[in-house]
Amino acid sequence: MAIDIKHVEHVALLGRLRLSDEEKLALTADLNNILQYVEKINELDTTQVEATSHILPIRNVTRPDVVKPSPGPDVMLANAPDREESFFRVPPIME
């Protein structure tokens, strides 16, 4: 499968990226290179290899259901661009 500029624009929209025309062209080339590399890997015989989603041989890491104190609104809002009382203030959200 080859990537064209339409794919790049679509993915950029989903990722909320504003790209210039030059960037779109450059990314189209980059992504096609990446896909070609994947094609290369596809030449390997992987019929005996299970699909891998996690590379660590670790399973079932859980924690007990215990509440620990949270830092508090003032700490968590310290970097907020804007706040109102203990809320983050954001531009209006259209419904």
């Binding site: 259901d65 215990v66 620990k68 949270s70 830092p71 968590m76 809002l77 203990s86």
Partner: peptide, 20 residues
């Protein structure tokens, strides 16, 4: 009692952003 991936409380009705 606590959230799914961290130890913040799940209690309803707390001060905004205090369980964060």
């Amino acid at each position: 009692k606590s959230k799914i991936f961290c130890s913040c409380s799940t209690e309803f009705g707390a001060e905004p952003n205090s369980h964060l």
